[in-house]
Design a protein around this nucleic acid. Structure first.
Lengths: 203, 203
DNA sequence: TTCAATTATTAAACAAGGTTCAATATATAA
DNA sequence: TTATATATTGAACCTTGTTTAATAATTGAA
């Protein structure tokens, strides 16, 4: 009796269609236009139907959220070949900022938006994010082990560095630097990254 | 003909009452419960009346926003007496984190929330915030001038430090560290502050 | 004081959003 | 074929911010 299998497959297809549509809207028109009604309209279903496939809106958002972390991790993985952990760390910092500023909606959803992290109840739901965090942490650990960073507290250093890049990104994305000219911001971010790089590392 | 004066005074009183009520709700029940309807109900007016005194909700939010910056600046001013700029900087960092974590709703509104900064169109509206930024910048400048920080780019250093503390605060407030135990976060933040302090300064 | 003009206030409505639900249509299993 | 289960819909509910027409109150002048 393969009927159940097929139905499950069809249901999964529908789920994917909804997610795909949500992502399209997300990329094209930003988070604010990913409304249940907008998704429904685009797939020519009624808003209520969405609820046959998802418990609530946050379940759909979560999929976009996860996609964002996939993108970020894929970028981080391009640094796999970098031998020197200090170089790797420096490049990771610039790569992170670049990702944040070139994918502002994704970044916002992943690290800033309200009501996203709050919905995560299952431990394993943090995995996609932790993977990226651990990638940074490992690099920091190598820097410490090889004597490039002079502090035994891996977590403090890692969190500090994350905070540093996230902070700049978040301030820019949420318009808290709007009083500064665009080019000035760019230069300043670049200068900050250099400053940190120069001072946190022993040569 | 003092009538117009009185009317203006009464109107101003009403504005203050609305703002006061909004702040009460804000502090008691958080940002999400500062709805026009909630404010109106508390002062026993109809929701529509609010619009005689404020163009829209963002004008009311802006008042709370400004109050937050007043609070922060008042805290910063307690450091006026600290002679050594390095000490001042270190203390300012801890004070900033303390403010952020003990006044999460205020901090959120001031530095994270969407749709707040976006509404600021007039240059002078940034003044309350810039004052705090300049206070940090001045301290950083002193550190550089006195040879404690080895980087001529005042803005890059200032923005970097701001980003660093803001980043940690924002990650915590917006629940991006929810996978870590509370005490661990506290220790880590403290460790990060120490790490930065130790490494960014020449002794 | 009276009355026209202004101003303040309200209730109701609108628009958008998430979500629920009874009714309908469709598909499945026996 | 028929009873059961599932999918879908449209309308409704609820909660926002905001607008508006109607009403009430106040004011300035005659």
């Amino acid at each position: 009796m393969g009927t159940e299998d097929r139905k499950e497959r069809e249901k999964e297809q529908m789920r994917q269609l909804i997610i795909k549509t949500a992502m399209q809207l997300f990329i094209e028109k930003g988070m604010d236009n990913v409304s249940i009604r907008a998704i429904a309209e685009k797939i020519e279903y009624s808003p209520g139907s969405i609820y046959t496939y998802f418990k609530d809106k946050s379940e759909i958002i979560h999929a976009i959220h996860t996609e964002g972390f996939e993108k970020l991790y894929a970028l981080q993985k391009t640094l796999d070949g970098v031998e020197n952990p200090v170089d790797k760390l420096a490049q990771m910092g610039r790569l992170y900022m670049k990702f944040a500023l070139e994918n502002r909606d994704y970044y916002d959803l992943m690290f800033i938006a309200k009501g996203v992290a709050e919905k995560i109840t299952e431990k394993q739901e943090w995995d996609v994010g932790n993977r990226s965090y651990d990638y940074l942490r490992e690099t920091v650990k190598e820097c410490i082990d090889q004597g490039y960073i002079n502090d035994p507290n891996v977590d403090a250093v890692t969190f500090g560095i994350w905070g540093f890049v996230h902070g700049m990104a978040a301030l820019i994305i949420r318009g808290r630097c709007a009083m500064m000219p665009e080019e000035f911001i760019e230069q300043t971010v670049s200068g900050s990254l250099s400053f940190m790089y120069t001072h946190l590392i022993n040569n």
